[in-house]
Design a protein around this nucleic acid. Structure first.
Length: 943
DNA sequence: CAGTGAGCGAGCTTCCGCTTGACTT
């Protein structure tokens, strides 16, 4: 056992070493292995990160133009790191522990992220005592002792690789998402992982939409092998007619066309042909023309890693990825299994020994291979900080011995069985193919094939059989038995059944199959697989239908935008290539700044500018080849004007030449035909079910949410209530032959009314507005409802009313009194302040907290600053108030906004379903003009 | 996707990967 060398520290000479690991669940066992002389603490994951939003940016950096992303792209992509609020307590206790120690051992995980956590700890703790790096991949007394005996220095290249990954992800996410806010809808998101995950789901749906079914027929026979055969009957299928092979599902392409392969002639049977063939074969003699038997072996599956665990728990137990991880977390914390977030299938020696011992004990020595089975890791980018997911300990407890129950029992049992099976012998047996011929009178010979599989030794299948996503596929342990058959043997057809089949479109992804695909593409990490699905569902890109993941039309629109304008970013190979580059950085063969420059400013390097807008001294000369290379993220993001959101959000319905389109719009998804007729499309209608016929059906029905209230007794017109752009309103239906210029009367509902409950009487009153109250100063005074609520109008002079009912009640005398008051600025009357904070240290004026249109804000009478999400208006301190005002002062006056006439493209709102269509919502801040300053470099590329 | 009139404190949304509580029901 290693002991700290004592006596060299000034921190009290305690002789104590502080060991910091990532997970608190490891603390107790490591502390017990290390013994006296050590304090063991945990960082609970990362301790610092780039700021999430403005609230986390220190006041000092608030004014910087890179404060929003936290990455200063113009100065070597220098990142700004902050300790998040919920990490402060952890840092405090680590600092306290460090104060007692005279050496620091950073024992975070042995991978890229772990190395970075160690570096951040070092940066934040600023130890005055020596700090070393300690790594281990197994928590056993020996492994821990070895780790202490083999300390190393921090690997700064590896840290660089992690920072590059982090910065790249931030720039991608925080630069591209705002493009979607401006072009599609607010609150959308894009990212290296989620955008590709969404694209995969969209791509699969596109295939399904384009898919055309083919139907084909074949002939199933049940043959009789004669008395004494076991089994006496067996199935066989027609495979050839003469020289031609009978077409099967795999012989058709996705358009329903028969594939032509060079050296093979196919016959595509239809129902009539098959029936004719069937009856002509009824009397024909059948005989065996070939028997081919081959040995069959099947290797066990590798032990679980995160993805395979999620897949199998999904298939066998019906768990979502999230539920699997949560149950696994419980098992891990209870000491039942090893760490559940891993990309490794490797078992430690201890685990192999435990598994082998249990195989012998439970199944006997005949099931144990002579030497341990070794499983290689999946891809080259595996990060091997942890071993496979397996039962914990030097010996494995059987599920019954654990005393676990419910979900925990079932998941443990699954993990246990899989681990045991991985150290068992192969399954062995034979697979047999029998060819049978029958020749109808005066026709070509027909070939039937029967295949069978028998297991002579179950091997690992005794313990574990993997499940499949395909509903009609049989498991690895399935056997089909054929009777003993010899060449030349005669058979009798017991029955002949023509069978029709149809090709099926590719199946949608499920949670586990999408995760498996992402893993294959090297996208995402074990700790994030479950949350990827959560992200794309919570953004409404994808929804679940049963277990299938179905994309929305919104996902189609966003994916198309990214594919056309950011093609490199949604390339399926993007992450894999990034990983290669990160490996280069980790190996010291590439520089972080160069990689990020290439990504952000494009091939050809940084095109920085000096104060005069001239190329900076470090701007490299850009060659023609470089220009032909790729554009950087910055330039792509700045080309907002080129993005035609309406076109990208519009998709044809049905086959080519159809004039009906489906479009993702501000108020949801709708179909539109050439005449401009529109109808809403249910958000949960799978895109591949939106056929031309269905679209026509939707278009022929009136738009939803409309309710007939009755007939106006005076005009005999139908009065309806419906949901509109500015909220619910009532209107009348004009006669068919009404002139085009005729406008129906309308009226917004009062807050107290709803489309469902409003009466005809209410509606007629609303439509009668404005109401003439009387005449004042020779001008007519009217009362009406407007976008800011009820008001009076006299010529160009308007005054707000307090309640909607006053529109109908107010008398001329009362109106006169209203106009006698001076015109009020702002809201009716100033509300009393929520709190008084004393004088502002800068202006000297008293600070008060008030409730305003956008929530609580603090003001010194001149400058106002909205309280942040975490501030409580009633308990806020003077200090914090002054800080907010100082922030605001530092930012300077808000940039002048230009009003856009039509809200058409920008500032899209959420779909109708969620949009509480309030009047104020319609008056939302006008869209900021895309500030696309042309770059003033001499070498701007011309394409 | 109906069409009416002021002037006002805007600020925030978003990424990926490491890890658990501290909350609520």
């Amino acid at each position: 056992m290693a002991k700290a060398a004592a006596g060299r520290s000034k921190a009290g000479g305690s002789g104590l070493r502080l060991v910091i690991v990532e997970s608190p669940t490891k603390v107790a066992s490591i502390a017990s292995y290390l013994g006296d002389g050590y304090i063991v603490e945990s960082s609970r994951g990362h301790v610092r990160d780039l700021p999430t939003g403005a609230a986390e940016v220190p006041a000092k950096y608030k004014g910087e133009k890179w404060a929003r992303t936290g990455v200063d792209v113009e100065h070597d992509f220098e990142p700004l790191y902050v300790v998040a609020q919920d990490k402060k307590a952890t840092m405090r206790s680590l600092k306290d522990a460090l104060a007692q120690a005279d050496e620091l051992l950073l024992a975070t995980d042995d991978d890229r992220e772990g190395e970075a956590i160690a570096w951040h700890l070092l940066q934040e703790l600023k130890p005055k005592v020596p700090a070393r790096r300690m790594v281990f991949r197994e928590i056993t007394p020996k492994a821990i002792a070895d780790a202490v005996a083999n300390l190393r220095d921090l690997d700064t290249d590896l840290v660089d690789a992690q920072e590059t990954r982090r910065i790249l992800d931030r720039l991608y996410g925080y630069e591209v998402s705002p493009v979607l806010w401006k072009k599609v809808m607010p609150r959308l998101s894009a990212g290296r992982v989620q955008s590709v995950a969404t694209r995969l789901v969209v791509e699969r749906e596109r295939e399904r939409i384009a898919f055309r079914t083919a139907s084909y027929w074949d002939l199933d026979a049940v043959l009789d092998a004669g008395d004494g055969a076991e089994p006496p009957h067996f199935p066989a299928r027609l495979t050839r007619v003469g020289d031609r092979r009978v077409a099967q599902g795999r012989d058709f392409d996705s358009r329903g066309q028969l594939l032509t392969r060079s050296n093979e002639v196919l016959v595509h049977l239809d129902e009539a042909q098959t029936r004719t063939l069937s009856s002509s074969l009824e009397t024909a003699p059948f005989s065996v023309v070939g028997v081919d038997s081959k040995p069959y072996t099947r290797k066990p599956y590798a032990p679980f890693r995160t993805t395979t665990l999620q897949q199998e728990a999904g298939r066998k137990l019906g768990f979502t990825a999230q539920r699997t991880m949560s149950v696994a977390q419980d098992l891990y914390e209870g000491g039942y299994i090893t760490y559940m977030r891993t990309d490794s299938s490797v078992l430690s020696d201890t685990a192999i020994n435990a598994a082998r011992a249990q195989v012998t004990q439970l199944f006997g020595a005949s099931y144990l291979p002579a030497s341990p089975r070794v499983y290689a890791n999946k891809g080259k980018n595996t990060q091997e900080a942890h071993e496979a997911v397996r039962p914990a300990g030097d010996t494995f407890r059987t599920p019954a011995q654990t005393g676990l129950r419910g979900d925990q029992f079932r998941l443990y049992e699954l993990i246990w069985m899989r681990t045991i099976a991985s150290q068992m012998k192969d399954a062995e047996g034979f697979s047999t193919t029998v060819r049978i011929e029958a020749t109808p009178a005066g026709a070509e010979p027909c070939t039937f094939v029967a295949s069978g599989r028998t297991l002579t030794f179950h091997g690992f299948l005794k313990a574990y059989v993997e499940s499949s996503d395909e509903p009609d596929s049989s498991g690895d342990d399935a056997q089909t038995r054929l009777p003993q058959l010899t060449e030349g043997q005669s058979l009798r057809a017991e029955s002949l059944t023509p069978a029709g089949h149809e090709t099926r479109p590719p199946a949608r992804y499920t949670e586990p199959s999408l995760v498996a695909k992402l893993e294959e593409l090297d996208i995402g990490r074990p700790s994030t697989y479950a949350s990827i699905i959560r992200t794309i569902t919570s953004r409404d890109y994808v929804f679940k239908k049963g277990s299938a993941l179905v994309p929305t039309w919104l996902a189609f629109a966003v994916t198309r935008l990214l594919e056309e304008h950011f093609p490199a970013l949604v390339d399926y190979k993007f992450t894999a290539q990034m990983e290669d580059t990160l490996d280069e950085i980790a190996n010291g063969n590439a520089a972080r700044v160069a990689v990020l420059t290439d990504f952000y400013f494009g091939a050809g390097g940084k095109r920085s500018t000096d104060a005069n807008g001239e190329p900076g001294p470090d701007a490299p000369v850009i060659s023609e080849e470089d220009l032909a290379g790729h554009e950087g993220l910055q330039r792509l993001v700045s080309e907002l004007g080129d993005i035609d959101a309406r076109r990208l959000s519009t998709f044809p319905v049905g086959d080519l030449g159809s004039t009906v389109v489906v479009r993702v719009g501000r108020y949801g998804t709708y179909v539109e035909d050439a005449d401009g007729r529109r109808a809403n499309v249910d958000d949960e209608l799978p895109p591949d079910e939106l056929t031309y016929e269905l679209a026509q059906e939707l278009l022929s029905k009136p738009m939803g949410e409309e309710r007939e209230l009755g007939t106006d007794p005076e005009t005999h017109r139908t009065v309806v209530a419906k949901q509109g752009r500015f909220g619910p309103y009532v209107t009348e239906v004009l006669e068919e032959d009404a002139p085009k210029s005729a406008k129906p009367r309308t009226g917004s509902l009062f807050a107290s009314m709803s489309v469902d409950s409003v009466t005809l009487e209410d509606a007629l009153r609303l439509m009668s507005l404005p109401r003439v109250v009387g005449t004042l100063d020779g001008e007519e005074v009217t009362a009406q409802n407007g976008r800011y609520g009820p008001y009076l109008k006299k010529g160009t002079d308007s005054r707000s009313l307090e309640s909607e009912d006053q529109i109908f009640d107010i008398t001329l005398e009362q109106a006169e009194a209203v106009y006698a008051q001076p015109k009020q600025r702002g809201r009716a009357a100033a509300k009393p302040p929520l709190a008084e904070l004393g004088p502002d240290p800068v202006s000297g004026r008293p600070m008060v907290v008030k409730e305003g249109r956008f929530g609580a804000y603090v003001t010194d009478g001149e400058l106002n600053a909205t309280l942040r999400r975490d501030d409580d208006p009633t308990t806020i301190t003077a200090e914090r108030g002054a800080e907010l005002l100082a922030d605001k002062r530092a930012k300077g006056p808000a940039p002048k906004k230009t009003t856009r006439r039509a809200p058409a493209k920008a500032a899209k709102k959420a779909p109708v379903k969620k949009a509480a269509a309030s009047k104020t919502a319609a008056t939302k801040a006008p869209a900021k003009k895309a500030a696309a300053k042309p770059r003033a470099t001499a070498s701007a590329p011309t394409s």
